[in-house]
Design a binder for these strands. Structure first.
Lengths: 160, 160
DNA sequence: TATTGTTATACTCTATAACTATA
DNA sequence: TATAGTTATAGAGTATAACAATA
């Protein structure tokens, strides 16, 4: 039992990337650096939120619904680069928690508009604060100007 | 049949992120931008390599072995933030392809040193070229100086 | 007792395909 | 015929736990 705990403990400390090793071309790859940073972000996200089931993707969807009430599932899926089935599952998650609801679209009976519930609005406001705090933690080593620059450069990468 | 093809086709085009939607606080989050860029990188990586089974992680491990021949699995796992079992599986993948081999460690009979085979050396050189090309594609919208800046900023995020 | 590596197992995430009900 | 959403299913990927061999 002690052994298992130790193994889990060791992994939990997440001391990525060993100084003793030569990373070769990896050290020159933007893609590798992006992945590293993303892993760090992801690893602390749920912890910062205080709920292991709330992932970055799930938060993103809730935020998107909050900002764009009434949009179709298909639009939300596209906006996040998800399949329709993945969007269904993610929406199910929040609906089961009472944070959002599907309302039949009066103009197209195949589809629903997705809306926050009253509970969802409260929840989202709470999460926004925690996520913003977490993001500040993630970028705590950067000056405000550097953070802005990073945002612009990443934006350029994503622009088509 | 036509329907299915269309669905897959649509997703393959990966037109992430809809201009019509308001991304709210997501637009201000470094973590969200990192994830977006990573998704773009990952989505094109295997395609650029021309082999759907070679993922960024698998390439990273091979590169690490190439630069650090003879290291233990546990060291490679730590260097990539993997569990021991995940490292085992990843090494199995390359070993089955004849690209690397486990050699018994003469000093510690519990462990192996991991080495490239002759085939692995050739393979790695080939992959390095393709990966570097892919990374250039990923950052094609950035000036050389911007690319360098991005690297430094990401480095700061990852530094402890 | 602790560590290296393997295996068994389970869980998360996401995709494609098939299905339904509409359009 | 095409589309919105659901469900069934499968495949990556990765983790923990248990185990064997060795330290």
């Amino acid at each position: 039992m002690a052994t298992r705990t130790k193994q889990a403990e060791k992994r939990a400390s997440l001391k990525l990337f060993d100084q003793a090793l030569d990373y070769g071309v990896l050290a020159r790859l933007t893609g590798f650096a992006l992945r590293r940073a993303s892993v760090i972000d992801f690893a602390r996200f749920s912890e910062a939120i205080g709920d292991a089931t709330i992932t970055p993707l799930r938060f993103s969807l809730l935020e998107l619904v909050g900002q764009n009430p009434g949009f179709q599932q298909v639009q939300l899926a596209d906006a996040l680069g998800l399949s329709r089935s993945a969007a269904t599952v993610t929406i199910d998650y929040w609906e089961q928690r009472g944070s959002l609801e599907r309302r039949p679209d009066p103009n197209d009976r195949r589809s629903y508009g997705i809306y926050l519930t009253r509970e969802g609005e409260t929840q989202l406001k709470r999460l926004e604060q925690l996520v913003i705090e977490h993001d500040r933690w993630l970028t705590r080593k950067l000056e405000p100007a550097e953070r802005a620059t990073l945002g612009e450069l990443l934006e350029k990468i994503c622009a088509r």
